[in-house]
Amino acid sequence: MSSRGSNPAHPSSGALPASRSERESTKGRTLHADPNAARVGDEAGASESHAKMRTHALSAYFGAAQVLRSIDLSIAEKRVTAVIGPSGCGKSTFIRCLNRMHEVGPGARAQGHVLLDEQDIYHASVDVVRVRRRVGMVFQKPNPFPTMSIRDNVLAGLKLNGLRVADPSSVVEQALRQVALWDELKDVLSRQGTSLSGGQQQRLCIARCLALEPEVLLMDEPCSSLDPIATARVEELMHALRKNYTIVIVTHNMQQAARVADFTAFFYMGQLVEHDRTDVIFTRPKERRTEDYITGRFG
């Protein structure tokens, strides 16, 4: 909150200062970085994109146990970035650090920097609530609100933020259409959110998140409880959302990563092993460990 008060040029969506140098001069806390650091995919030459988010020396802990070790990763704007790696390697922890959800658990803390539009979201002056509005999250397990109807679940994000909605019905319809639930559910919108099947619940949670129109969408294995048809729909959805949103998806499904992601990051035992264009990761990875993992030799 105070950051906005003292710094009217706060680069929220749509109000980005014109150039990088200007952005850095308006904020003393921006990390110094070489001019190419904010570019993703330079190594491969093509599909260059501005970095929406960037982590710098990001470490995460549960009590004394360190589960992320100094992660440096750029997340390309309006692209899909997949995070892959064996179970327990810290994928969920990593994306939870991207909207400061990691620190919610008891004893959990994060160290280092996560830049969103070049502003450190771990800076003391940053309003956590605002960060989470801009960086939405779909959790590994579907978690619709049991006290609310399907309709209210979709609107929950707006209501919990104290926002007035001019036309709630159209918000609900649009959000549910995006996740291909509208035709299934349009006549039962007053049913309890938890009365849906697991896959429907997960899509409802995605709709709830989309209704808030975040800038970045974090998805933690969004398809792990979905059937192939619903999975295909979510993948189509990601493809469509890519025009306006920056998406980070955790997945155990290599084919899915290959299908939906522009970039893929491979994590292993709390470390970022390799991050590159998806086709590069899957066809000619630089690291032996990456190759072993994607060819199924371990994990």
């Binding site: 919610v104 609530v129 989470r132 509005r133 939405g136 959790f139 994000g157 949670c205 808030l212």
Partner: peptide, 8 residues
């Protein structure tokens, strides 16, 4: 977490 994640 769902609520906090929505920015509540």
């Amino acid at each position: 977490e769902a609520a906090l994640g929505l920015g509540a």
